[in-house]
Design a protein around this nucleic acid. Structure first.
Lengths: 349, 349
DNA sequence: TTGTAAGCGTTATCAA
DNA sequence: TTGATAACGCTTACAA
């Protein structure tokens, strides 16, 4: 194993100076055609590739962008990562991947690592904590784009998300139109926009239909853990249990469904169910789930594009919020509400 | 936004030279206690973080390792990535993520990018092509570890995988023990070890039970695309269709199941099914699937550990192959074979 | 149009 | 124990 060629080797081989090589490499400044040819030949012969580190050290910026996601075991984030990687590749950007596991402490640690300026930008799903650190990143002139979620009241950062209020309102209206009046909602924490906005959309739809909200039916739970299952079990134990359920916390969909299956709740006979985020495995579940499908490719596209533009200062200052529409997919897990007498025995407790 | 502090700023603030700061930073060489304290204070005051690029340029190696996976939309690889990221973090290693989408061309491109030595090591799932490039990486002294799959006949690289032969044999024996004699196998390409070895395990089990193999029941298909569904449909159309099926190509599990569901094949009444890789959504499918569960956390642990050790030259030369046992989970998708007369009408064609 | 040389922020060598 | 100083590989004024 012999050491890789440097720009100096190329220059020597081509019989020119390093600046010429640098110029053909970056297409910055003039180069005589025949010299350019020689340089290209030398590069090929020596199989030369510029060292990213040297380039970064010398001229500042980096073509690496950090991707700080909650948790790749969640198919939503996994597919998001997949698309972000694809979009990044087509722009010759590299992706440095980290996860928070929804843990503010790990998030802080990741942010600190990213802070060493080795990234030219950052795309992330914030846990909701560590506001100061996110601010610092941004104030250090590292462009930040939140995707999916955002933290309320953090200016300076761009956001790409679905239309959360509208999506939740649509899901709620769908159930209301089928006669449901007691609609349970499992949401994310209220200090994240996905949590807050979806609750808002839900309440809005309820109000428009003149249905009084019931606190016991609206349960924000952490993304992490199994709390979603617990709160649904509690709802089902109420005197007037819900006849339908919206799981607006994507990370909790699986555990809620598992609990429902284990408790032998019949869907949609006992309970109509709408879930946020559709994933390829959803269609194999019986019954197929009515879902809010998030256009993951668009989320990824806009997030990368935004960062890319900021990195090249191609964007006017001031935060941008890109909202993309989500698709409501009616499938078989939601049905018209049935009179109480027809329902099977209460499944829980 | 003011520019970040450098080691020189710290040295000035602490009233020492840069060498002293460097020494406390890397714990290399002696430093007087009180000076160390001053340096630490200065670092804290200035909120100094060493620039990764400068460090890399100066001393060679990089603490970034490349992770080149097939496809994050596949839950198996996504969970693998999740664990790799976690293991890397605990060793203070960074992860540069790329995907091949099972496309040799994209793989080549990714490998070229990685070739600029900006990574200190590489963990990957090879498509099966680009052998020269993988070899080159290794010969350039960049440690490479294949995980899950490997390319046959590529020395120099470490491999971490499950016991593929044994796992396939166990799955096959499970079906044989339940009276199945016509067992379909959908595998991966034979030029990958997962494809090749699983076919071997299958044939081995068949032979031990004195069952003659039938070429029409063994179908290697690409990881990418929907071929898995096609070949299963073909098998079911045979004069003597299989009574059971092993989907040993993880990437094809979903499409095969979807096709089976759409064709209204009753599992396990018409067809017993074993799938390779269990994922959290599997348990929500009816019937719950008998599966070979891969210990993803162990795969990730060993892969990162191997790379880490190589990066610190803590390992004797010569390739290592770590094989971890997979777990066979009997659930409800496999049953004793039923006499032909009892079976429901042929579901396909 | 080309070449020289001064950085960029570290680490490492070697006198002091 | 310490502090100059020379790399590391590249970009970029600035001179020629």
């Amino acid at each position: 194993m012999k050491k890789a060629a440097t720009i100096r080797d190329v220059a020597a081989q081509a019989g020119v100076s390093v600046s010429v090589v640098s110029r053909v490499l970056n297409d910055t400044g003039p180069v005589a055609p025949e010299k350019r040819a020689k340089v290209l030949a030398a590069i090929d012969a020596l199989d030369y590739r510029p060292r990213a580190a040297a380039r970064q050290l010398s001229q500042g910026g980096s073509s690496t962008i950090g991707l700080l996601l909650a948790d790749l075991a969640n198919p939503f984030f996994a597919r998001l990562a997949d698309r972000v990687v694809a979009e990044a590749r087509s722009r010759e950007l590299q992706i440095l991947l980290m996860t928070t596991q929804e843990d503010p402490h790990l998030e802080a640690q990741a942010l600190d690592t990213l802070l060493d300026r080795s990234v030219g930008g950052l795309i992330g799903t914030p846990t909701g904590a560590n506001v100061e650190r996110w601010e610092k990143l941004a104030s250090l002139d590292i462009p930040v784009t939140f995707v999916d979620r955002a933290i309320n009241g953090l200016a300076q950062v761009d956001v790409v998300s679905i239309e959360n209020v509208e999506s939740a309102a649509t899901a709620t209206a769908h159930l209301l139109a089928r006669g449901h009046r007691r609609i349970g909602l499992v949401s994310g924490p209220l200090d994240t926009t996905t949590g807050f906005d979806r609750v808002r959309g839900y309440e809005q739809a309820l109000q428009e239909h003149g249905v009084a909200p019931d606190d016991r039916l609206v349960r924000p739970v952490p993304f992490r853990g199994d709390r979603g299952a617990d709160v649904v079990a509690q709802m089902l134990g109420l005197d007037e249990p819900p006849t339908s359920l919206i799981v607006a916390n994507t990370a909790q969909v699986r555990v809620v469904l598992r609990m429902l299956f284990q408790a032998r709740v019949s869907i949609p006979d006992d309970l109509s169910v709408v879930v946020f985020d559709d994933n390829p495995w959803t269609e194999l579940i019986r019954p197929p789930l009515t879902a809010v499908r998030q256009p993951i490719d668009l989320l990824a596209l806009h997030a990368v594009e935004l960062i890319h533009a900021r990195m090249r200062q191609k964007l006017a200052p001031g935060p941008r919020h890109v909202r993309v529409a989500a698709e409501f997919l009616e499938r078989a897990s939601t049905a018209r509400v049935r009179p109480v007498s027809n329902r099977s025995e209460r499944p829980c407790q």
